[in-house]
């Protein structure tokens, strides 16, 4: 990974973190107009993986956080408008912030039911194959979602048809209040790759370089027509399942332990040690993030709500 890419990944991780902090403030103040599942602590995985894609590849993100969209380059103000259910976003109040969509960058949207992403990803892979393109589909999901039947069906179908789909599990240890070991028969989700005869690999999901390298390898493999892969990044959900989650199902000690491997300061220290990230650049990134977020908040406040009768639009094409 070159210096420029490292800085870009760091910049987007930082912007994502600051944006989620702002969204949490807005939600707590009753000013967000919507609801979301924070992804604080999982930004390294999300940003670094998406950095391995081409702009014409397809992306199915998961439900945790804003970093997928920030990484893909969707304007922040659109994300905030979707959060508030306003015009000016990507879905005109129809789907909220959990259905951000951006066709021009291959962002196909999100399934409201967990695991709905897997068949959709397989279908996008099918399109690529039939049209003879060399695009790739990257499909994010959580450890809990790997227990859906759709996971099995789509992995098997993709493997049999050698479809160019990279399945990337964000294993953060928790499915809402249920720890992975209580719900999932394997320790590493990537072990399930054996059942589909596809490559499976587990990496440190809080290490952007490890994530990028693994995803790049799988993406290249898929692009060359060699079929799907199942990757897993071990990470941790540092915040609750939602803003306001009492989190009484897990110990404070456990959470504090994981804050010590928060990917943001960790990557910051690494890049500082490599003399890539200077105090000056860091300050610039912080200032730029804050200014971008301020502008986006203002923009979303200025946007109108959708016309009530537009609720009847968009059922059919």
């Amino acid at each position: 990974m070159d210096k420029k890419l490292k800085l870009e990944i760091y910049r987007k991780m930082l912007l994502s973190r600051r944006l989620e902090e702002r969204i949490a403030e807005l939600i707590k103040a009753g000013q967000a107009g919507g609801f979301m599942h924070p992804g604080v602590g999982q930004e390294a995985l999300q940003v670094a993986a998406i950095a391995a894609l081409r702009p014409d590849d397809y992306l199915l993100y998961a439900h945790r956080g804003v970093a997928y969209w920030v990484a893909r380059g969707i304007p922040i103000e659109k994300i905030l408008c979707d959060l508030a259910g306003k015009e000016g976003g990507t879905n005109h109040g129809k789907g909220g912030v959990m259905r951000v969509v951006y066709p021009q960058l291959g962002v196909l949207g999100e399934s409201g039911t967990l695991g709905g992403c897997f068949p959709i990803a397989a279908g996008a892979g099918l399109s690529i194959r039939v049209k003879g393109e060399d695009k790739v589909v990257l499909c994010f999901f959580g450890d809990g979602t790997s227990n859906r039947g759709t996971f099995h069906e789509a992995l098997n179908l993709c493997a049999v048809r050698k479809l160019p789909v990279v399945f990337l599990c964000e294993n953060n240890g928790w499915a809402v209040s249920t720890p992975t070991e209580k719900s999932t028969a394997v320790k590493d989700i990537a072990m399930r790759a054996a059942g589909y005869n596809v490559p499976g690999k587990t990496v440190d999901g809080n290490d952007p370089e490890a994530v990028y390298d693994a995803v790049k390898e799988a993406v290249d493999r898929a692009r060359q027509g060699n079929g799907p892969s199942l990757l897993e990044g071990k990470t941790y959900r540092l915040w609750g399942h939602w803003v306001g989650d009492p989190e009484d199902y897990r110990s404070r000690e456990e959470v504090e332990k994981h804050w010590r491997s928060d990917p943001l300061p960790r990557f910051e220290e690494k890049l500082a040690g490599e003399k890539i990230l200077t105090e000056k650049i860091k300050a610039e990134f912080e200032a730029e993030a804050m200014a971008t977020i301020d502008r986006a908040v203002e923009f979303s406040r200025s946007q109108p709500h959708p016309k009530p009768e537009s609720a009847l639009d968009d059922v059919f094409a």
Binding site: Y58, L108, G116, F118, P119, I120, A121, A122, G123, A124, G125, L126, S127, I128, R129, V130, K131, G149, T150, E153, A154, N156, L157, V160, R161
Partner: peptide
Amino acid sequence: DERVFDSPISENALVGGGVGAALTGLRP
């Protein structure tokens, strides 16, 4: 075989795959 093929017994993946293929430019 690219345009007409046998699928596994996986109804969720069949229909969901059809949605994904339709989103990305096919008419499955």
